[in-house]
Computed example of a mutant assay.
Amino acid sequence: MAKGDSTKHKIEEAYTSLTKSEQGVADYFLENTAISDFSSKHISTLLYVSEATLSRFAKKCGFKGYREFVYMYELDFKDYFTEKEEKEISDITRSVRKNYKDIMVKAFDLIDEDQMRRIASRLSNTEYTVPVYGMGSSGYVAREFQLRFMRLGLDVIAITDSQMIAMNASLVKRGSLVLAFSISGTTKVVIDSIKKAKQNGARVVLFTSSKDKKLKEICDEVVEVAYLSELETGTKISPQISLLILLDVLYTYYFANDSYFKAEKYKRTLSALEIKI
């Protein structure tokens, strides 16, 4: 007997001993494929039988009463779907799913709404090109940032080469805005470059999981990024996922700031991409 079929099996075994009205009840429960309202009041009305008939039906199937029958019948459904899930989802897939769930919960718990508003406002009001620094997996996020925000009209450039990051930091103008991504907070070229950019009078925003207090001394904003052990090595899930979550939140805040103007910019950039040469 398959897991999840025990109650229906008992109904089938008792079927020939049931009266016509009881067999009508049996047919309903044998053909049913989902949990619903199985209360005696609801089923008696639905099947045009008395609640006493339901009680006799349950006892003939081997249960103390209708209430116990319903309990076991629903439990069989739960067992069936649990078994089905276990068969269809391997331990490996379940582990990946858990890691994604954990990182998403942590990411949204860490989000500082006021901080997102401040950064979005600075992006909207900057007069200069916004350089976005990132190396390795953080570099992928920097390029995604450029692609997403450029479509809304922001003058932004992703810089993912170590020498280019260093040179850009030495040339940024006073009052400009610099964004940097470093999950570990220890990428030397990125940290050295935001120090240099800060010395040149730029406003610096760093996205990192590091809790090093020294980073706050060289940045105007430090956005805390969710982190799982071994995340930056990519041995669990894509290490940039926590940064991408923050990117999406920031993007939404940025778009909400003068959404009509940004929507028009978005339409124009999409039109440009559709031009055939």
Rank of each mutant, 00 (worst) to 15 (best):
Glu232Leu: 02
Tyr227Glu: 08
Ala158Met: 10
Ser176Lys: 05
Phe207Gln: 09
Thr208Gly: 12
Asn168Ser: 15
Ala256Gly: 02
Leu244Ser: 05
Lys188Asn: 12
Lys265Gly: 00
Leu215Phe: 12
Phe207Val: 11
Tyr227Phe: 11
Ile191Tyr: 07
Ala263Lys: 14
Asp212Phe: 07
Ala180Met: 07
Lys173Cys: 02
Ile165Thr: 02
Thr160Ser: 04
Ser229Asn: 09
Ala142Asn: 07
Leu206Cys: 06
Ser210Asp: 10
Thr252Phe: 13
Ile191Cys: 00
Ala142Met: 09
Asp248Gly: 05
Tyr227Thr: 00
Lys173Met: 12
Arg148Val: 09
Thr186Asp: 14
Glu224Asp: 15
Ser242Asn: 05
Ser170Trp: 02
Val204Leu: 02
Ala226Gln: 02
Asp192Pro: 01
Asp161Ile: 10
Val204Gln: 03
Ala202Cys: 11
Ser238Pro: 14
Ser162Glu: 11
Ser242Tyr: 06
Asp192Thr: 02
Phe181Thr: 09
Ile237Gly: 00
Lys198Gly: 03
Val225Lys: 08
Leu247Arg: 06
Ser259Gln: 12
Glu224Thr: 13
Glu221Val: 15
Leu206Gly: 00
Leu228Asn: 09
Asn200Val: 06
Thr208Gln: 13
Ile183Gly: 04
Val190Glu: 09
Thr186Phe: 00
Ile218Cys: 01
Val205Trp: 03
Val225Asn: 06
Gly234Asn: 06
Ala256Pro: 00
Ile241Cys: 01
Arg203His: 09
Thr160Glu: 11
Ala166Pro: 04
Ala158Ser: 15
Arg151Thr: 08
Ala256Val: 01
Pro239Gln: 05
Ala166Val: 12
Lys195Ser: 13
Val222Phe: 03
Val172Asp: 03
Val190Lys: 03
Phe145Lys: 04
Ile245Thr: 10
Lys188Asp: 15
Ile194Val: 15
Ile183Glu: 01
Leu171Val: 08
Val205Leu: 11
Ala263Tyr: 15
Leu152Ser: 06
Thr160Val: 14
Arg151Glu: 10
Gly175Val: 09
Lys211Thr: 13
Ile191Asn: 04
Val222Trp: 01
Ala166Ile: 12
Ser210Thr: 12
Lys196Leu: 13
Lys213Ala: 13
Val141Leu: 15
Arg203Ala: 13
Lys214Met: 09
Glu232Gln: 12
Ile237Met: 01
Ala180Asn: 09
Leu154His: 04
Phe261Ser: 14
Arg151Lys: 15
Leu171Tyr: 05
Ser170Leu: 11
Ser170Glu: 14
Lys265Asn: 15
Val223Phe: 08
Val141Lys: 01
Asp220Ser: 08
Glu217Leu: 12
Val223Trp: 07
Asp161Met: 10
Arg148Thr: 15
Ser242Gln: 05
Ser210Ile: 08
Ile218Phe: 07
Thr187Asn: 02
Ile159Ala: 00
Ser238Phe: 13
Gln240Ile: 00
Ile245Val: 13
Leu154Glu: 06
Gly175Arg: 07
Val190Gln: 01
Gly234Ile: 06
Val156Ser: 00
